[in-house]
Amino acid sequence: MLVLALDTSTAACSVALVGVDAAVSGPGSRPVITALAGRVTVDARRHGEVLAPSIAAVLAEAGARPADLGAVVVGTGPGPFTSLRVGMVTGAAIGAARGIPVHGVCSLDALAGDAAALLEAERPGSRDAGRSALAVATDARRREVYWAAYRPATGGSDEPERIIGPAVDRPPDAAARMREAQVGSLFGPGATLYAEAFAGFRPPPRPVFPSPAALVRIVAAALFDGGAPAPLVPLYLRRPDAALPSAPKAVTA
């Protein structure tokens, strides 16, 4: 199945075309995921302009047409509202136009999935050796981070399991709760942005953005189960800024 995946929950506008093949039968077998083409543009204010041309580009690069798509997977945040909506409405509209399912995935879960894979690559086999929790943090602006904490993957799954969040907090508050949860490693652009507040955690191997491939990995099994995906719900985590009006002010006062 040809799957279009995209995430606009951070400064990165990420798009990928991914081939997903159903798991061969047998216990523990998982769908096979092949990256076919991808585009990442890091420019927090231009997602609206960059996203659609990036989608056209990955389709062209893979020699595919929109009609070949079998599903869309989008990151649902949390992230800055405006850019997050660009990605979500794009995925939803493509799904509506082609009559294909659109799956939403918490963007922080994708970041954590890639982070866990990086750790595993660094120290193979340590997954089952009681590795400490990991956390991811992205820029929420207003001197806050979006973050979540995860327990390492256990036998049944490749993906780490979210134990806290997604949440939005000031970096020192997030750091305190991560320490409570015995987080060892912290990943994501929020970690580098607030290096001082997060100084106690092992420095991330590199700044990572949520990758479209990780989004697909997380829902790979659901792509084949034939059920309708859950409704797409953006993870805003904040109420809109809006003040209730006071009584009309006297102009003659």
Partner: peptide
Amino acid sequence: LVGVAAAKAYALALG
């Protein structure tokens, strides 16, 4: 931005 992104996606998906 929501409408423009939706319109682009719809047009792109339909060619």
